[in-house]
Write a protein that binds this DNA or RNA. Structure first.
Length: 269
DNA sequence: CTAAGGACCTGTCGGC
DNA sequence: TGCCGACAGGTCCTTA
């Protein structure tokens, strides 16, 4: 479910309550995630202090005194901060009790998420092969242009390939292509440098706007009712099949690599 | 090496 | 109302 902006919003939301806090206890109700949680996981992290929370793509990295925790929220994962002794709901699989009497609670109904401990998190196999951050200077039109030469895949699939660039999921891939005026099915290897420059910039803009929106709509991660749910930014094409595009065209829906794909055939070429 | 499809899992929604 | 299929914001792994 969460894409980069939602993960970043989560990171910012929990950081003030979690940084420099000691993990006093780890309670595991269900260890069946994408990969079964290591039975020794609590031993690795209990008693350690969380020194920082970083994000790499859609992964959160909790830096500990020794090693770190690598968390992915999958399609349906979320983190909340709740008071000690607060009753768990269904799918609340893991609790981290903290020194400040709060509990960092992981919920993940579909269990597509994952949690690992690693002594050197950045060298973990899940992170090592990831492409650059889309909001970094390493990601630009030239980068997309060069890596796309000779490829036969379509541009939307390229944009969603985390080996090439991280964090762009189905929603923001659709939105970025719309703002760049590029048809999602266009062959990636036949798009000009100029158009890739538009695409890189549109991607950055869409992600930045979503992060800003998340910050305003999901401000508080610790309210008693504090659902750390996901926010809906104003989407131009995603989920809008049949509706009018501002250009007067109609937004179409198709399927690309098993994912719903939305575009305006009039302004996206 | 690249590309495509399956797999994992639960909840929700629309149609009959 | 109940049942059933399709779909959901991810991505690794296998196969070609």
């Amino acid at each position: 479910m969460p894409e980069l902006p939602e993960v970043e919003t989560t990171r910012r939301g929990i950081e003030p309550y979690v940084r420099d806090q000691r993990i006093t206890q780890v309670l595991i109700r269900d260890r069946r995630f994408r990969w079964p949680l290591d039975a020794a996981f609590p031993e690795y992290v209990t008693g350690q202090t969380i020194r920082a929370i970083d994000r790499r793509g859609k992964y959160l990295i909790f830096r500990l005194d020794r090693g770190g925790m690598i968390l992915h929220l999958g399609m349906s994962g979320s983190l909340r901060l709740v008071p000690l002794n607060s009753l768990p709901g269904s799918h609340d699989h893991i609790d981290f009790a903290l020194g400040n009497q709060r509990v960092l609670r992981l919920r993940d109904p579909r269990r597509f998420g994952s949690l690992h401990f690693a002594l050197q998190p950045d060298e973990h196999s899940l992170l090592r092969t990831l492409g650059p951050e889309p909001l970094s200077d390493a990601f630009d039109g030239k980068y997309l242009y060069q890596l796309s030469r000779g490829r036969t895949t379509v541009v939307k699939t390229l944009l969603m390939n985390s080996q090439l660039v991280v964090g762009i999921g189905n929603i923001y891939a659709n939105e970025a292509l719309y703002y760049a005026g590029i048809h999602p099915q266009r062959a990636a290897g036949r798009i000009s440098l100029r158009r890739y420059e538009f695409l890189a910039q549109a991607t950055k803009d869409v992600l930045q706007a979503a992060i800003a929106k998340g910050g305003t709509t999901l401000r508080d991660f610790v309210q008693s009712n504090g659902e750390a749910g996901y926010f809906r930014i104003d989407l131009a094409v995603y989920g809008r099949a049949g509706q009018r595009c501002h250009c007067g065209g109609t937004i179409r829906q198709t399927r690309l690599a098993q994912r719903s794909t939305y575009y305006c055939a009039r302004c996206q070429r």
